[in-house]
Amino acid sequence: MHLHLKIWRQKNGDQPGKFVSYELPEVDEGSSFLEMLDIMNEQMVSKGEEPVAFDHDCREGICGMCSLVINGEAHGPQRATTACQLHMRHFKDGDTITIEPWRAKAFPVVKDLVVDRTAFDKVIQAGGFITARTGSAQDANEVPIPKPVADKAMDAAACIGCGACVAACPNGSAMLFTSAKAGHLNLLPQGKAEKDERTLKMVEAMDKAGFGNCTNYGECQAVCPKEITLDFIAKMNRDYATARVRKFFSKAC
């Protein structure tokens, strides 16, 4: 298949970027989206041109590195699919495909299609962990966890931190990411001890990082490659409210 590509090129964060058009003949329908970019880059290198920089790692849809907005949709048109797992058979011969980086103030462009997602690390550092005592590991079934709770925690823990939720949100909000990361720990007995502190600190870090506010559009859920739902945002809204109230009254005594 023959493709027309419109790709965002930007030398670095200080210089403005622009779209550059490329023609790519003879793309195999069986190749993945990233393989298509690899082929294009090889051709560019052989011509002595600067290849297009893009993030990638496992190419199995589990690492969260790939971060392409394809035709205006984070990770492309396929639901519950990362860009690396998207295949060219979902496009037609002669299609024009626009490829852009995640766009959000909290995710500045490093180069071309690569963005800096340190802001997510800041949110995790604020509370996305449990303070575990050192020593030998606990016996596996010592802490009973009901199956539905474990399942729900696992749904949240499926978040790979790719940032598609931020990219798709018209407000550049990181609520889905933060709520998934806080939610999976807040649900489990191991994480409950620090639930209030975690929720307050992660929301604070999220706001500080320059992410926008949630206005309940639902775009994040629609693009999430791991199908994390707005339920976790609702849960975080609940947890945050109770944490604020408890903190207010514990200060008094």
Binding site: G72, K105, P170, S173, G212
Partner: peptide, 17 residues
Amino acid sequence: NRAARPEDYLGQKTRVA
């Protein structure tokens, strides 16, 4: 929210909003 998302995408699409 406008400050948090300064630029739109070229082929901006809305899925569910």
